[in-house]
Design a protein around this nucleic acid. Structure first.
Length: 481
DNA sequence: AAGACGTGTCATTAG
DNA sequence: GGCTAATGACACGTC
């Protein structure tokens, strides 16, 4: 049992206390020699009064229930309410005065020894709290830490990279390996009928399946498959080729690649539209066989040699087999659409195709007489170009969103830790007060005597205060169950 | 060799 | 109905 000796109760009650040291409501009598609170030099009657007031003040806390652990949110802020209801009491949360021997303001676990019966939840709370946070933290950490810390270190860096994406995607590495996706056949007059283009080997070949016919890729040879035919251009398109290409097609592709480069070369040299390859500044000075080799890290010499550095491209990389040479700088590879535009002699630059407002774009189209194939290509180029930018923006936004959520998570974790700490302190204070209540309660009982001068058993009676401030000694048998 | 990552593209949807 | 932005899904290259 806790002791009340040798510490000053910090609580003072100003409300009326009906019970007097001499007589208790309910017939109990208080001996006149009730010692009250000892060791303070206070007159005994006053001591008893003070002790009694303090006791009954704290009794208000008897109805205070420690909230269930299940509701963390409410627990956070509720503990202060009952204390507030006490109102006139100033409960120092820090408990500057030395605590009673049995009511030390220590951790709830330690407190258990003092209040294990009266406040069995005290220890549980503490331990539960510990368990709660000790258990939940690792779980959270397991989920959260990888996001925000070491295992995912580069979201910021990623965002930086994303910010650079607008300027970097124009000079991607040329793809060099055979792709395995869908392919489009294509051929032109005067070219090897069975030649196969680089784009052949690109999956999807950038064709819009619904919006326009398989595109005027300059590098799609005819292989007997049904396709689109353009009478003006003498071209046949087909995307009927199944996935995967045959060795024959590959060999044909090699053949074609050289032819196409020659054609492109002549077109690029025509000087018709030197600004095709925007946004990169371009110089239409591609010469077959003199293309600056790009470092080939993954492909063996066979392919790159065979393709004359015009190895196949893919969806994921739009730089390909043609280059514009820039004086004093590395050559800028042409994108697939750029090559197509070159091949179909689209009379305006890619930049305009993609970036012009729709009205201006339509007006631009009216200024030229374009074949259906050219028109389809231009529209697809526009669609793809816009979608490419949209995809970049979309990805950038996604990364920024992740970063934002990551920051928010860190803030919430910090807040949670703070609230947990606050909760612990509240629980500690509550345990301290309940312990003190028990001490005072026991002490009061120790001085109560019935008519026969016999002490009341704390197990058989309890003190209760009515709303009007009167205090009664009530047998347990009369209490509501 | 497998996996992560970056990128382009297509399909779809909503405004 | 056409256009566009947004976005998921996919394919591919690169590391």
């Amino acid at each position: 049992m806790c002791s009340t000796a040798n510490y000053v109760l910090p609580l003072r009650r100003t409300c009326e206390v009906v019970a007097s040291p001499g007589r208790l409501c309910g017939g109990a009598s208080m001996p006149n020699n009730f010692p009250g609170v000892r060791s303070h030099g206070v007159p005994q009657d006053t001591e008893m009064d003070v002790a009694w007031q303090e006791l009954m003040a704290i009794t208000d806390l008897q109805e205070f229930e420690i909230p269930s652990e299940s509701s963390y949110e409410t627990v956070q802020y509720q503990p202060m309410e009952p204390m507030a209801s006490v109102g006139q009491y100033a409960m120092a949360q820090s408990h500057p005065e030395p605590p009673p021997a049995g009511c030390e303001l220590i951790s709830p676990v330690s407190y258990n020894g003092c209040y294990s019966e009266e406040l069995p939840s005290c220890h549980r709370l503490g331990s539960n709290t510990d368990a709660m946070y000790e258990n939940s933290e690792p779980q959270l950490n397991q989920r959260m830490l990888p996001i925000s810390s070491h295992s995912q270190p580069s979201l910021m860096a990623l965002r930086d990279q994303m910010n650079m994406s607008g300027t970097s995607h124009g000079h991607r590495r040329a793809s060099t390996s055979l792709s395995q996706g869908r392919h489009t056949l294509w051929t032109t007059h005067g070219q090897s009928a069975h030649a196969r283009s680089t784009d052949d080997l690109e999956s999807d070949s950038g064709l819009s399946l619904g919006s326009s016919p398989p595109l005027a890729s300059p590098d799609n040879p005819v292989s007997g498959a049904p396709g689109y035919q353009n009478a003006d251009m003498g071209m046949t398109f087909s995307d009927a080729e199944p996935d995967g290409i045959t060795e024959h097609a590959r060999r044909a592709h090699i053949h074609y690649s050289m032819d196409y480069q020659s054609q492109a070369h002549s077109y690029l040299h025509s000087g018709a539209h030197p600004s095709y390859f925007s946004p990169q500044p371009s110089l239409s000075h591609t010469q077959p066989g003199t293309l600056t080799p790009r470092p080939m890290k993954q492909q063996g010499p066979g392919l790159s040699d065979l393709y004359g550095d015009s190895a196949m491209s893919s969806r994921g990389s739009s730089q390909h087999n043609m280059y514009t040479k820039q004086q004093g700088s590395a050559p800028v590879p042409l994108s697939r659409d750029e090559r197509r535009a070159v091949a179909l002699k689209i009379p305006f630059p890619m930049e305009k195709i993609i970036n012009l407002p729709v009205d201006d774009f339509n007006e631009l189209l009216t200024q030229y007489t374009l074949t259906d194939t050219q028109l389809a290509l231009v529209r697809d180029i526009r669609r793809r170009g816009k979608n490419k930018v949209a995809a970049q923006n979309c990805r950038k936004r996604k990364l920024e969103s992740i970063i934002h959520l990551e920051r928010e998570l860190n803030q919430l974790q910090t807040q949670r830790d703070h609230l947990a700490q606050e909760r612990m302190e509240f629980q500690r204070s509550l345990g301290f007060i309940k312990c003190r209540l028990t001490d005072l309660y026991t002490e009061v009982f120790s001085h109560l005597r019935d008519e026969d001068g016999q002490p009341y058993s704390i197990d058989e009676y309890s003190l209760q205060q009515t709303p009007d401030g009167k205090i009664y000694l009530i047998p347990h048998t009369m209490q509501k169950s």
